[in-house]
């Protein structure tokens, strides 16, 4: 009992301390740079932010979507397993999306449903319905570094993009995509203390602001850990670009996961009531 109360009391102050440290020492870090370097860094950051914000803005208005996802997990020793998941997503105001994942393969997790309510700044809310336990359980959205269904994608990689949860930096220009075209190189650093990455580096085409390649740098080692290649972009509702295939390669183990999207549909008129915790409880 005492232990529980003790932990409850110490949590908020530690957060305040963290904020204080940033407030106190954040400016000191910047002040060590020359004024010119500082203004250059700020402009590179705001340029990158502007690009990401524009990309985010262009993705507004699809209302809702559904799709089937197949994951092919290829391990370095050549063994291969498949995962199948059906997804439904409901677009909300500024980053308040809701999503449902219905697992269908492997069969032992068939019937499992994963519900996420995303928030632009606050932590996401997640619930899981496990048919084997006949229970809807709230789960922590902080388990970010775990592999999603044993694939090379982590829970963090599968989460909805949220503009304000990251800091950005413009690194330069390159060529990328199919066909090869002028691209921005943008560095993203997550503000989330639970992130598994030090940074990610994205190659985004200048014309449509689609990501074609993302490099993930491990927070633990600082080294390039994974590389994601996005391809077969399709345009839906004459406006929204979605990749049909995402290939994540683990640069260390050499195993890879190919994620394929099929039957992507938008603006279906999905009901908000489907994305409630109570809708999961109906399965009991």
């Amino acid at each position: 009992m005492d232990k529980i109360a003790f932990m409850c009391n110490t949590r908020p102050p530690s957060l305040i301390l963290f904020v204080l440290l940033i407030v106190l020492f954040g400016p000191m870090l910047n002040s060590s740079l020359s004024a010119q370097e500082t203004s250059q860094a700020v402009s590179q950051a705001s340029k990158a932010y502007a690009i990401m914000a524009e990309s985010d803005k262009r993705d507004i208005g699809w209302q809702d979507s559904s799709a089937n996802m197949t994951m092919i997990i290829r391990r370095a020793d050549g063994r291969e397993v498949r995962r199948e998941v059906m997804t439904k997503t409901l677009e909300g105001d500024v980053g308040k999306d809701k999503s449902l994942l219905f697992f269908s393969k492997p069969l032992d997790v068939k019937g499992t449903i994963f519900l996420t309510h995303s928030f632009p700044l606050a932590s996401d809310k997640q619930w899981i319905y496990l048919p084997s336990q006949n229970r809807v359980k709230r789960i922590s959205s902080k388990r970010k570094t775990g592999r999603f269904m044993g694939s090379e994608f982590t829970f963090e990689d599968m989460a909805a993009f949220s503009l304000e949860k990251n800091n950005y930096l413009y690194l330069g220009e390159t060529k990328c995509g199919e066909p090869l075209q002028p691209c921005h190189i943008i560095e993203t650093r997550s503000n989330d203390p639970y992130t598994g990455y030090e940074k990610t580096i994205s190659h985004i085409d200048q014309a449509e602001l689609r990501s074609w390649k993302i490099e993930f740098y491990s927070r633990r080692t600082g080294q390039l850990a994974k590389q994601l290649t996005l391809s077969n972009y399709q345009r839906y509702l004459d406006k929204f670009w979605r990749p049909s295939q995402l290939k994540m390669v683990n640069m260390i183990s050499k195993s890879e996961t190919v994620l394929q999207w099929q039957d992507q549909k938008f603006n279906l008129g999905l009901a908000d009531s489907e994305f409630r915790k109570a809708a999961l409880e109906r399965r009991q």
Binding site: C8, R11, S123, K125, R138, S140, K142, R143, Y194
Partner: peptide, 10 residues
């Protein structure tokens, strides 16, 4: 009662 705070569930 259930309360979620970061990685804690009370």
């Amino acid at each position: 009662l259930e309360y979620a705070a970061e990685n804690w569930l009370w």
